[in-house]
Amino acid sequence: MNVKEYINSGIIESYVLGMATEAERQEFEQICASHPEVAEARDSFERSLETALMQEAPAPPAFVKEKLLQQIAPPVVEDDGVAGMTEAPVRRLNPWKWVAAASLLLLAGAAYWAYSTNEKYQDLAARQATMEKQLQQSTAALQLLQQDADILRHPMKTVALKGTEMAPQAQTTVFWDTTGTKDVYMLINNLPQPTSDQQYQLWALLDGKPIDLGVFDFDVKEKRLLVKMKNVQKAQAFAITLERRGRPNPEVPEGKAYVVGKL
C-alpha cells in the first residue's frame, strides 16, 4: 500500500467527520494501528478541525447548561406531600385523580404480581436445589455400581459361602481373582445382624489354617455391593466368623463360623 497516497485520499477526513462507510472505517482503524504515520495524520487533522471549530464559537443559551446539570444529577428523593388528602370524600374527583387512583391500583396489582412471582421463584429454586442434591447422590451411587459391575466383568472364581448351624439362612458370595491380582471381593447376600460389640471377619483356609482377610461391619453392605477384602495367594476355602470387636489377637479366630464355602 502506498501510505502517502492513502493519507491524501480523503479517507482521513471521511473517517474523522463520520462520513466513512462501515467497511472503510474498519479498514482505516486497522491501517492506523499498523501505520503510525496514518494515525499521526489523523491526529493532526483532528487537531486542526478542533481548532477551527472552537474559534469564535457563539455560546449556547445559558438555560441549556442549567437544565443539563439538573438532568444528570442523581435523583433527589421527594417527600410525599399528602397534606390535603383528608378532606370529605363526597366530591367529584377530577379526571387526574381517577388516573392517579387507577395508577395506584395498577401499582398494587404489579406489586402483588411481583410478590407472588417471587414466592414461586423461591419455591422453585428450593425444589431445584433439592433435586440437584438428589441427582448428585444418585449419580455417585450409580458410579459405585458401575465400578462394581466392571469388577464383576473380570473372570473370577466364585465361591458360595453357605450358612452353618449358627445361621442356616446366611449366605455370602466371595469373588476371587485367582489369575491376576489375587483380589478378594465379598457380596453379602444375607448375614444376621450382630450386636454392636461384635464384628464379622473373613478368613481364607489353607491346609486347615485360617488366614485373616479382614474384619467388616454389618452395615458395609449398605454402602457398597462388592466389599473389597485383603487379597490372598492360595486358599482352599473361605469362612466368615463373628468376633469380639477389638480383640487383642485378630490373626486367630475366636468366634464361631457363620458361613463356609469350599473351592
Partner: peptide
C-alpha cells in the same frame, strides 16, 4: 460533575455551532 461542567463550558459552543 465538575468535570462535566468544565466539558460543557469548553465545548458546548463549538458543538452548538
Amino acid at each position: 460533575e465538575q468535570a462535566f461542567s468544565y466539558l460543557y463550558d469548553h465545548y458546548a459552543g463549538a458543538l452548538y455551532n
